[in-house]
């Protein structure tokens, strides 16, 4: 793949991202000068031990948090200095985010199909829930409420919900953390299918099964990227 092709496929890139937190008056460094890119149609895994800064980097890349230093570009737009309103607009248009706990991603008063409709409406588009759900193996669950689904099903619905409206970038924080192996396998399959549909998929994970399924891996240790 040429550099030009690679650049054209790049949805997200960050350079020199540095971030820290104040704890009891002291600054704890979470990230130090991290560079990374995420491409369209590719599943990228963000791996590293607990406390390595995976979630912080994920939030920064998903435009949920501003880094202290460094730049983050989504579809070529430098986001770190954008006003909050434009960052929200960018998130709405380009970013789908999946939280770690399946239940945290879903609304108890909406059915599976309604989630997809809502996801699309928030991006001012429409969706045919049946097709998407069938693609993710959830065709029979369209009329079900989240409490009627298993954890794995909930997480796949969360992925579908995040992907509704076709955001450019799909970000998932430990999507298999609370799932058994079988459910994890189905979530991984779902991630792959979403990447195949043209989404850039970025997944923070501890799970070797998930990272093994990724096309590309970014490894963090103590807030720094490890290059092998």
């Amino acid at each position: 793949m040429t550099h030009a092709e690679r650049t054209a496929r790049t949805v997200l890139s960050c350079t020199g991202v540095t971030h820290g937190y104040r704890v009891d008056g002291r600054t704890v460094r979470a990230l130090s000068a991290v560079d990374a890119t995420v491409e369209r149609g590719v599943v990228t895994a963000l791996v590293g031990p607990s406390g390595s800064g995976k979630s912080t980097l994920l939030r920064i890349l998903a435009c949920l948090e501003r880094p202290e230093a460094g730049t983050v570009e989504i579809t070529g737009i430098e986001t770190t200095r954008l006003p909050a309103r434009r960052r929200r607009a960018l998130r709405r248009a380009h970013v789908g985010y999946v939280f770690q706990d399946p239940a945290d991603n879903l609304f108890g008063y909406l059915t599976v199909a309604e989630h997809l409709t809502l996801g699309a409406r928030l991006r001012k588009t429409t969706v045919e829930p049946g097709d998407v759900l069938a693609d993710l193996g959830l065709g029979a669950r369209a009329g079900h409420y989240p409490r009627e689904l298993s954890g794995g099903e909930q997480q796949r619905v969360a992925l579908a919900f995040a992907a509704a409206g076709d955001p450019t970038l799909l970000v998932a924080d430990e999507p298999s953390a609370q799932l058994d192996r079988a459910a994890t396998a189905r979530v991984v399959a779902a991630l792959r299918r979403l990447a195949a549909r043209g989404h850039a998929v970025l997944v923070a994970t501890h799970d070797p099964e998930v990272s093994a399924a990724a096309d590309h891996t970014i490894e963090l240790v103590d807030g720094e990227r490890v290059r092998r």
Partner: peptide, 11 residues
């Protein structure tokens, strides 16, 4: 949780 989902989607 619901607000987090909505705000993460740019609401």
């Amino acid at each position: 949780a619901e607000l987090a989902v909505l705000c993460a989607r740019g609401v």
